[in-house]
């Protein structure tokens, strides 16, 4: 009998411990920002801008909060202090860097390392660069009609408004590129639009955190394809016809003979013709598309070779042929010697 009471007592004791979670702030007591912007002040400190969705208000979908500080952490701390609710950074989906931060290699890699190391900010948040004032980009959403608070992120979201030429570069890939010796990275450039929330302006090429070049959307899209990402859905205008890419795939064959590096890459593209002028044959469309793509590739490749930047990740194809230690000198010693044969094979559906 006594034993039974004892057990009952223990069961009731658990009520004491299971009544709530430790130090957890309830969801209605939290401020959950979706987009974070980082820019540099004239005086030298950082300014952090957060875009926070507002749920109840009909006329405004989000509000923008800023904080300034010597470092990103202290700027975030300022926002935390002045915020009326608990700041919860775990749902940040997009980090926008203003160009004055992005152009400084040391500061940029410092910020990327901080964001990656931070336990709160998820490493799968996407990164973008802007030339405008980052505050304007984030608040521009408020004067557009019919958008909702997540629209800025939806621009990059494959499940929503994403278009095939836009790079979506997550934070962890950016972090990886700081250390990689065989692959560089492209980050999308955006600005606030007049009627739409954002406009895609192309992509910046980063080599170990340093900006090397900027490419327009068409070139960016070719880079995406060469990195073996599908370009399905991309619409291209050839002047006398416009086509839509329905599938694409790429194959690489690397070889190293007598110290000569050769990479043969075959791009297979399947297209649909959307409209054409009278008398234009299929053959002409195919020839023209192949010519344009090849020309575009060799132009980018020449430019990249001059700046020792391997945006296509060609070095990765030589993992089997060059030893790990030698690959560390890939950019300076092997890459300038690399010869690439690029062939495009277009098929009509």
């Amino acid at each position: 009998m006594k034993n039974k009471h004892c057990k009952l007592f223990i069961v009731f004791m658990t009520l004491l411990f299971l009544c709530g979670c430790w130090d957890i702030k309830d969801i209605n007591k939290r401020t959950i920002p979706l987009v974070m912007g980082i820019s540099k002040e004239n005086g030298g400190g950082y300014k952090v801008t957060l875009q926070i969705p507002v749920l109840k208000n009909e006329s405004q979908v989000s509000r923008v909060v800023t904080g300034k500080g010597e470092t990103v952490t202290s700027a975030l701390g300022k926002i935390r202090t002045s915020s009326e609710n608990a700041l919860d950074n775990t749902q940040i989906r997009l980090i926008v860097l203003q160009n004055n931060v992005a152009h400084n290699q040391q500061e940029l890699s410092g910020i990327v390392k901080f964001l990656m190391g931070s336990e709160e900010i998820p490493s799968r948040a996407l990164i973008a660069v802007t030339d405008e004032n980052v505050e304007d980009v984030l608040s521009s959403i408020n004067d557009k009609l019919g958008v909702h608070a997540s629209s800025i992120y939806d621009f990059f979201n494959k499940g929503a408004g994403w278009a095939p030429e836009i790079f979506s570069t997550p934070l962890w890939e950016m972090y990886r590129s700081l250390f990689s010796s065989t692959k560089d990275i492209a980050v999308p450039v955006i600005r606030s639009g007049k009627n739409t929330v954002l406009i895609f302006e192309g992509s910046e090429i980063f080599k170990k955190g340093k900006i090397i070049a900027r490419f327009n959307p068409d070139e960016s899209q070719l880079i995406r394809v060469l990195q073996n990402k599908n370009e399905k859905g991309k619409i291209e205008s050839l002047g006398f016809a416009s086509i839509m890419v329905s599938n694409s795939s790429i194959q690489y064959r690397s070889s190293l003979k007598n110290n000569k590096l050769l990479l043969v890459s075959n791009l297979h593209v399947k297209i649909n013709v959307l409209e054409r002028k009278d008398g234009v044959t299929n053959n002409k469309i195919i020839k023209e598309l192949e010519r344009i793509s090849e020309k575009r590739f060799y132009e980018i490749f020449k430019q990249m070779k001059e700046s020792h930047t391997d945006i296509f990740g060609f070095g990765q194809q030589f993992q089997q042929l060059i030893s790990y230690d030698d690959l560390k000198q890939w950019r300076s010693e092997y890459y300038p010697e690399l010869k690439v044969v690029f062939e495009v094979d277009v098929k009509m559906e």
Binding site: M116, P122, S123, R124, N157, K158, G159, P170, W172
Partner: peptide
């Protein structure tokens, strides 16, 4: 842990 954190499956 970082590799697990990098996964982003929207659906």
């Amino acid at each position: 842990l970082e590799a697990m954190d990098s996964i982003d499956i929207s659906w």
